[in-house]
């Protein structure tokens, strides 16, 4: 890969001094959304939700439709402002120590109070089905990820081009660089969006249904990339529909449910969260958990109740 600093930052691996890397409920490490509240038109969508995502791991955000998974991601990404609550990130090892450590003592940064552009250099968000009708090329689409890294009056620099190409190579889409985004298949487009997020060189990657509409091979490729990024120290929080895919690829899981007090039914390592006792009441199904004969990971099958 390239020697460019941001790219190096992407690949530098975990930089925070995390005391308990496997703990699911730590509020001291990684990304933490605390008591987040959001309502629209008088309807409470998120009610005092606590969600944490440990650094260097993939956390699956699960739950039936309409439980506010997407909303929560949008709030964490700073696209929308929550009505209340706190979103913070631990382990500020960024080379530009602009933000002073919060009042809580530890080096936790308040993502909601962070200036927009700095937040966009910290958190990348891949939304669901982002599309365009404009004739933009794949490379230009990925270069958008460099927007928060440069002056809005300046065009993309040589470095930006190098980083964008590296990001495309990373997702296996360098060959598409000159294609127009509108001509891509769903799987190819998803890779381009991932590359755009990578070009942002984020410490936190938020994914909203990253495997939606993808065929099985594309789903696995996406999740493999996500796991690689996590291993390199990126904190990943992904809203997922497919519980089996979550069981196969996530380290941690958070299950949201409508009406549950605090919204969060269970949180922790997938093996502890994706069990019939949690899933059955939330989804109204009967779950059987098997073991994958080769990977040893849980495989979930469902029946109607």
């Amino acid at each position: 890969m390239t020697q460019v600093s941001d790219q190096a930052r992407l690949e530098a691996g975990p930089r925070s001094t995390v005391a308990e890397p496997s703990a699911g409920r730590t509020s001291g490490a990684g990304l933490a959304a605390e008591r987040v509240r959001w309502s629209v038109a008088g309807r409470l969508i998120l009610d005092d939700v606590d969600v944490t995502a440990p650094p260097g791991a993939v956390t699956g955000l699960l739950g039936p439709n309409g439980t506010g998974k997407s909303t929560l991601l949008r709030l964490v990404a700073g696209v929308q402002r929550p009505d209340g609550g706190r979103v913070s990130l631990a382990g500020t090892a960024s080379p530009d120590p602009v933000g002073a450590p919060g009042p809580s003592g530890a080096a936790r940064e308040d993502l909601l109070a962070m200036p927009r552009r700095r937040r966009a250099r910290t958190v990348a968000f891949v939304e669901q089905d982002a599309a365009t009708e404009l004739p933009v090329t794949v490379l230009d689409a990925v270069l958008l990820g460099r927007t928060p890294h440069r002056s809005l009056l300046a065009g993309p620099s040589e470095d930006d081009h190098t980083i964008a190409r590296a990001a495309l190579e990373r997702v296996g889409a360098l060959g598409l660089a000159d294609r127009e985004v509108t001509t891509l298949s769903g799987g190819e487009r998803q890779r381009v969006h991932m590359a755009r997020a990578l070009a942002q060189a984020p410490r936190v990657l938020l994914l909203d249904e990253p495997t939606n509409h993808l065929d099985v091979a594309a789903q696995l490729a996406t999740m493999r990339l996500v796991r690689e990024l996590a291993r390199e120290g990126v904190t990943v929080l992904a809203a997922l529909h497919d519980l089996s895919l979550a069981a196969a690829t996530c380290d941690h899981a958070v299950v949201l449910a409508p009406g549950a007090s605090g919204h969060v039914v269970a949180a922790g390592p997938v093996e502890q969260v994706l069990v019939p006792e949690v899933i059955d009441p939330v989804y109204g199904v009967r779950t059987t958990v098997l073991r994958h004969p080769r990977t040893g990971r849980p495989v979930l099958t469902f029946e109607e109740r």
Binding site: A120, A130, V136, L144, T147
Partner: peptide
């Protein structure tokens, strides 16, 4: 340019 993929993606890019 940041609006290419809509408001949400523009906001996520710090606009």
């Amino acid at each position: 340019d940041a609006f290419t993929f809509g408001d949400t993606s523009a906001a996520a890019l710090g606009v």
